[in-house]
Simulated scan of single mutants.
Amino acid sequence: MSLTWDGDAPSVGEYLELRRLAGLSRRAPAAAARGLENSLHIVTARARGRLVGLGRLVGDGGCFAQVVDIATDPEFRGQGVATEVLTRLLDWADAELPATAQITLIADPGAFDLYRRAGFEIRTGMIRTQA
């Protein structure tokens, strides 16, 4: 099936549904709306108009950016959707962010290979999450 790609933010409902399908944590609709609105860049993949892949860059636009929300509908896993989403996000970052910008992400161990192939390396760190 042919996918269409764009940089438009999905609706809050689409975003929350894809996160659910992809097994990502729940977000409140108001928080999701604010997060989508404040993204540096968004990449979406659609099949027949339905959101099947997503990724976002968030950050300050100068020194720091973080890859978040890499999500693929389970029906489309194994077809390179996440790889293409990540590639498009990083291509945008290379073109639009200063060369000295640090791009980070937090990944589940099952996704390490995807991010290693894109040039990321594992480092130790800490995270604080809200309830």
Results as ranks from 00 to 15, higher is better:
33 A>W: 11
87 T>N: 15
13 G>M: 05
52 V>R: 14
40 L>A: 08
85 V>S: 02
104 T>W: 03
67 V>Q: 08
129 T>A: 07
106 I>T: 10
112 F>A: 10
41 H>C: 03
45 A>K: 00
53 G>Y: 00
21 L>M: 12
55 G>T: 02
91 D>Q: 11
2 S>Y: 02
112 F>C: 08
74 P>L: 05
77 R>C: 09
8 D>V: 04
35 G>D: 02
111 A>F: 05
81 V>S: 12
77 R>Q: 14
117 R>G: 03
74 P>D: 10
97 L>V: 01
101 A>E: 00
38 N>L: 04
11 S>C: 06
34 R>F: 06
52 V>W: 13
76 F>R: 14
20 R>M: 00
48 R>D: 14
112 F>W: 13
111 A>D: 08
98 P>D: 11
56 R>Q: 08
69 D>Q: 12
102 Q>L: 06
3 L>D: 10
116 R>D: 00
91 D>V: 01
16 L>P: 02
57 L>W: 08
21 L>T: 06
34 R>M: 07
101 A>M: 03
40 L>C: 06
102 Q>C: 05
95 A>W: 02
97 L>W: 01
123 R>Y: 10
111 A>W: 08
125 G>W: 09
19 R>M: 02
61 G>S: 12
15 Y>S: 03
103 I>Y: 03
98 P>K: 15
99 A>W: 14
25 S>V: 10
